[in-house]
Amino acid sequence: MRALEQVDLHAPAGTVLGLLGPNGAGKPTAVRILTTLLRPDGGSARVAGLDVVHQAGELRSRIGLAGQYAAVDENLTGAENLEMVGRLYHLPKGEPRRRAAELLERFELTDAASRLVRTYSGGMRRRLDLAAALVARPPVLFLDEPTTGLDPRSRIGLWETIEGRVAAGTTVLLTTQYLDEADRLADRIAVIDRGEVIATGSADELKDQVGGERLDVTLEDRSQLDAATAALEPLASDRPPAAIDGALCVPLNHRQGAIAEAVRRLDDAGIGIEDVAMHRPTLDDVFLALTGRAAERSEGEEAEGEGAG
């Protein structure tokens, strides 16, 4: 069985490419291939300009991987974990220790630096894992479901850190099953399902592609609904405006300038407006429209407790 069929991805340097898909979509396989852990049986991929098969050795010094299964050594302290990684990446003498201290500080782990990792909470392990991925300052970072299973506070903290790395010029490939995560972090999103990329684009482009964006207009006087429908008809996409619960819902072709245009038209027709709201589809809507299924959430929904410290 092939885990990946039609996967054509591209991420410009210094941006975040989100790989969005449910469990079993093939995200881990894609990450394993791009991080040289798995040899693809066909096709090719370049990361940081290097071929993942033929230049794997060179590539390894330029990538970092952190993920869902925080791979940290339980029997080492936080500091020792990072120092070991620094040595494995051939940092010059003295540098692993300096770099470890710096990262522990940045990830608010300084107090726990000399504690064995087996005493760490889930959130702390995840931060340490991300810190380890950053030790060698790799230009390309792979984050495999970095916040799955994390409590909301740790999640937002991790997002901020990732945003900081991207602002500093790191290119990130992020896999996630959380639509809000892709929405917040990713410049471009590739939606994959059953080993195939079924859509790509920015979050906005994906939403446009699906359509479903609509203007909800509440009128001061409901008896004017018909007049309002006529006035807004030209703005609507192939589906006509419809009255739902006394509000007029107008499916839009283009969202740009739609609010101003609607207000102007209704004003010209002498129709009073109580409220105008743009209803934007979420990535959930996108996923549903693309796959015919809701995005599947997994066991990761329950947040792990963040311990003291």
């Binding site: 991080t35 040289t36 852990l37 050795g57 060179e58 390894r60 010094s61 990538i63 991987l65 993920g67 299964y69 925080a70 791979a71 050594d73 339980e74 990684v85 494995l88 990446y89 051939h90 380890a132």
Partner: peptide, 13 residues
């Protein structure tokens, strides 16, 4: 199982 092996395998060693 812990992913430590993967960690070593993606390191430039």
């Amino acid at each position: 199982e812990s992913g430590m092996l993967d960690k070593f395998l993606i390191a430039p060693i």
